[in-house]
Design a protein around this nucleic acid. Sequence first.
RNA 1: GGAGGGCUAGCCCUAACUGGUAAGGCAGUGGACUUGAAAUCCACCGGGGCGCAAGCCCCUUGGGGGUUCGAAUCCCUCGCCCUCCGCCA
Length: 432
Amino acid sequence: MLDLRLIREQPEVVERALATRGGGARALIGRLLAVDAERRRVLREAEDLKAQRNRASEAIGQAKRRGDDASAEVARMREVGDRIKVLDAELKSGDEEIDRLLLQLPNLPHPSVPVGESAAENVEVRRWGTPRAFAFPARTHDELGEALGLLDFERATKIAKSRFTVLWAEAARLERALTQFMLDLHTREHGYTELWVPHFVNGQTMVGTGQLPKFEEQLFKTVEPDDNRTLYLIPTAEVPVTALHGGEILAESSLPRRYVAFTPCYRREAGTYGQDTKGMIRQHQFDKVELVKVTTPAQSYDELESMVQNAEEVLRRLEIPYRVVALSTGDMSPNSAKTYDIEVWLPGQAKYREISSCSNCEAFQARGLDLRFRPAGGGKTDFCHTLNGSGLAVGRTLIAVLENYQEADGTVTIPKALHPYMNGVERLTARC
RNA sequence: GGAGGGCUAGCCCUAACUGGUAAGGCAGUGGACUUGAAAUCCACCGGGGCGCAAGCCCCUUGGGGGUUCGAAUCCCUCGCCCUCCGCCA
């Protein structure tokens, strides 16, 4: 969430910054300012009365110890207490409304982010590799995978529903090899600490990381007799890993923290009917190796650049062409202050498609999680910055391998970088 | 699932009468002292409101509610952790 004080002190700055991020920020800010002003008026009155009561109670205690009669003062304080109760109730509802409003506002974009309404205004930052020239019509991964008997969409639909996939034999091994390869790269060469985390988290974690209430309809959740015990399946490892240090005050000397976690991701994909219905581009369950950093404000933009580089390195080692795109204000997710997408070349679609999204959320999540650090020189604590990025989405990487390394006969060559992980298999051929 | 114990600052430890208004140690950071270090001393090391400032005030004992002039303390409720029993990969 945004800093209420910033909205209070510079509402026009916030409003201007959010102009192209959708969601009617103007009206929300107006309402926030009104509720906040009233809340502070009530707060002052309540605090004055509490100060009175504290003094009077002290005096009553002393009087009683002396054996004096204090009944008049007690009666007066009873009325003050009743008034305090009313004011405290008003404060509580004001706080709740402020929270509700704050949770609807997106993050402020960094000044370097291209201003725009949609993906049309995204800016390509760089390209790597040259798409291979095929001497035959390039097939899509689902055509290739089904023909080889390695990707099974029909049976996945039978046992679950659409947007699920069964991987057979060497395709399942390839998924595992890619995962292992990515984790090894990031832990051994990029300095990340590997974490293994819960796939279910509580509501507080979802709110703190900015998933709720905005993305309620995208989340799978458990059915519990008692609503506040509901657990949510993680839509990305970003959620548990970013929330890991919530409520903690970290030593500045321990920052930046660099974490990598492999988990499946579970998403309802509501409202995406008709998009990417063929193949395994968009699934209810997909594997992802996720990079998360917790940094000081001063470090976060350098760390964003290196995180993108770390994610890109996966595709460089696999020798698959890609490009890096800076998302425009209108295309970024609400948590983010700045996002780079990595888009991998898919010959079957003859398009670059998203395979990683790396974001600096600055203090937006840290504020909700109460994630702070203590400056090395002592003094006041401040909120950390949090970053997250896919390093990479494993299923989409598998797709990219299939499509980029396909041969005329429909088989698929395994990239050299994966050979140590494939138990001698160097080519995917039809399953017998 | 059953029984019991617990939750106080910074991922530590520890107080507070038959309810009287909460906190000491340690660690950390900066400073003083020192050739350097240790030891010692001082300050800071939760959140918020008002104020130009100095400062004043409020809140913070797992969360929420109740009783009371006043709650860490009494009552209700929820959560989490630990121990034992049962079951179990």
